[in-house]
Amino acid sequence: MKRLTAGITIALSVSVATWTAASDDIEAVLQNSFVAKNQATMDRLERDAVQTACSAPRGLPLDNQSLTTLREERLNAVVMPADRQYLGDWQRGAEVAGNGRGLQSSDDPTQPNGGNCYACHQLAPDEVAYGTLGPSLTGYGARGQSEAMLQYTWTKLWDTHAYNLCSHMPRFGAQGILTEQQLKDVMAYLLDPTSPVNQATE
């Protein structure tokens, strides 16, 4: 609250001094432009280090060293499954991949969150309603189930910035969007040879 008040004070003094400085105070603008609704609370507008680094208009800032450090921090913070079992049930994983609900102000917070993989990725070849913001993952299981492959895929789902800083993909593990079990189920959906993702098209 104190921060907010300070922000407003700065916004007022800045707007008197010069119009062009208004954007220096983007946090204050957002605080004044949004209101909390159900589970979508105002603290969601505060950015962490990744979000701040990845908010630069038209691409990344040029300070490569701090970006490399940030990416390494994300990699070191990945939490692997405690029992080292990476693969769950692909059928439940299919439900997670198709479910677009969760964490919106309009969603029931007692229901499990979805992963909404199909919003951006092609997966099972017989599902035509897939988005194209991310690469196609059809046939992903052909990469096999080596320990390296399991850890790579888990890391990608847990925190995409560990490999590809400022990727558009959400951090499903690090941000608590999906549970450990849901992540395992999605892993199986991607990697299980019997999953529809890995069935050849006719």
Binding site: T20, A22, S23, I26, V29, L30, A40, R44, L45, E46, R47, V50, Q51, C54, S55, A56, P57, R58, L103, Y118, A119, C120, A129, Y130, G131, T132, L133, H168, P170, R171, Q175, G176, I177
Partner: peptide
């Protein structure tokens, strides 16, 4: 200028900005 800055502002549990979906051509959701 402010609008452009907000357009790229990533926040929330999914790290989404306007740009997440609207800075590339010929893309779609579902």
């Amino acid at each position: 200028t402010l609008g452009e800055e907000i357009f790229y502002y990533r926040a929330g549990p999914h790290d989404f900005s306007c740009a997440t979906c609207h800075e590339q051509s010929d893309m779609r959701i579902r």
